[in-house]
Design a protein around this nucleic acid. Structure first.
Lengths: 240, 240
DNA sequence: TTTGTTGTAACCAGATGAGTTACAATGCAA
DNA sequence: TTGCATTGTAACTCATCTGGTTACAACAAA
């Protein structure tokens, strides 16, 4: 049996035993508790309550007897129901949350974002709000690849990189910064934690976003203070 | 704060504390850890790691300081991502399961179904496969109401009930069974467990389905043996 | 009777989450 | 500066859940 299928079913709310038993039963079509146990690896003495639970959840059917026979309910049917339940739960939650969320917010000019998705989300948002000009410094092509499509649409795009050869074939016009300037963006250590900056973007001399690893965790810092943005840009210009 | 919103978020994979903190933060727009604690009821000494977790999951952003300020990422944005993740997980699982499910199955002629959804699913399937004739006995209008639409499409529909007055206004033509015949479907006790039958349907003299409560739990029994169906129908006919 | 199988029930151990306590560090006000 | 409240960290307890095991009753076949 594949490993991934169990993992997937667990994400959808089944336990490991339930996932194994159900997947096995789907594969066997019809089987006794013992057979499910043999193939799935679920302990024999537990297979009975597991199958009973699956029955209560609408995943399997059975025919009483000695031995009792079990079969899986058609997976597309079960999965469709699951999807409907989850989607309607999400829609409900979204509406409830939005009804709490009436007031305006985001007044603080600087925010940190921690998760990978959160960072990408922020970058997308940031890119979509550029009006005239975006200057970018970056040290790895990953970020440019990830946001290539949005980046292409940005007006006034200028990119500086540490070494040109890392960025060939991406379709971006990049400029290499001058000798010795890379020290501004080198890995450094503060308070015993190592920091490294992967990318810096400044939009319209107004807001900026810094992406990097600080103290062992990936972080993005969004700053919407024109003063700071101007200063950062001045530094950036000096990199030519 | 509403109770339902926390319950909904928990179904989507958050813990109680996480759900409370996130919902609260959505409502406040921007707040310190303390404020979130006060409003959400999450213990103050736990609010810090909860908010950190929410950050790692992409639900909140923060600005370091003393005190650190937090804000919720826009709920529609977060929820949309969650939906995409779950739906793609379901699609993947469905495909993997179906690829295991190539062989034909369902050869056994009798099956029990336990869950509410499973029972309804079975009944829908059963009704959709009627070709010429469906005879129904039922003791409560619930089942007819639940499957009214499908039932209307069934050819050769004949319904017998215990007492006609319970079924007025449903748009079904029902026939009352004769005096004394209800004893066949009365609640009865076997092996110390009480059983009661809510409905019995027979399709094309071929297959039948019985819905009822047996030993304290709701159960449907599907039988695809023509012999049994014929016998059941003979009994049914005698109810006139 | 013996043996093996089916099915039930209980138990143990590890992980996780809810809720609490202790305490270091950081301000802030007198 | 001292004293005090607040911020933030870390640990611990308790209950629940899940994975994994043991014991045993009921039953059928040999």
């Amino acid at each position: 049996m594949q490993e991934g299928i169990v993992e997937g079913l667990r994400k959808l709310g089944l336990t490991e035993y339930e996932a194994k038993a159900y997947a096995t039963l789907v594969g066997m079509g019809e089987a006794t508790a013992r057979e499910v146990h043999e193939l799935s690896g679920v302990p024999r003495t537990r297979i009975y309550d597991i199958l009973r639970d699956l029955g209560s959840k609408g995943f399997v059917e059975f025919v009483q007897g000695s031995p009792t026979y079990y079969r899986a309910v058609e997976p597309d049917s079960v999965m469709e129901r699951l999807r409907d339940e989850l989607v309607s739960c999400i829609d409900r939650s979204t509406n409830e949350l939005l009804s709490l969320n009436l007031e305006a917010h985001g007044s603080s000019p600087v925010w940190c974002v921690r998760s990978k998705w959160g960072i990408n989300n922020r970058i997308r948002d940031f890119l979509s709000k550029v009006e005239r000009e975006l200057v970018v410094f970056c040290r790895s092509p990953d970020l440019l690849i990830e946001h290539k499509a949005e980046m292409k649409k940005v007006p006034g795009l200028r990119i500086k990189v540490d070494r040109k050869e890392k960025f060939v074939g991406l379709g971006f016009e990049v400029q290499e910064m001058k000798e010795g300037a890379e020290r501004f963006f080198k890995d450094y250590i503060t308070d015993g934690t190592s920091n490294s900056i992967d990318a810096l973007m400044i939009a319209d001399d107004r807001s900026s976003i810094v992406v990097g690893t600080m103290g062992g965790e990936r972080l993005a810092v969004i700053i919407r203070l024109p003063v700071v943005a101007m200063l950062q840009k001045a530094g950036w210009e000096s990199l030519v």
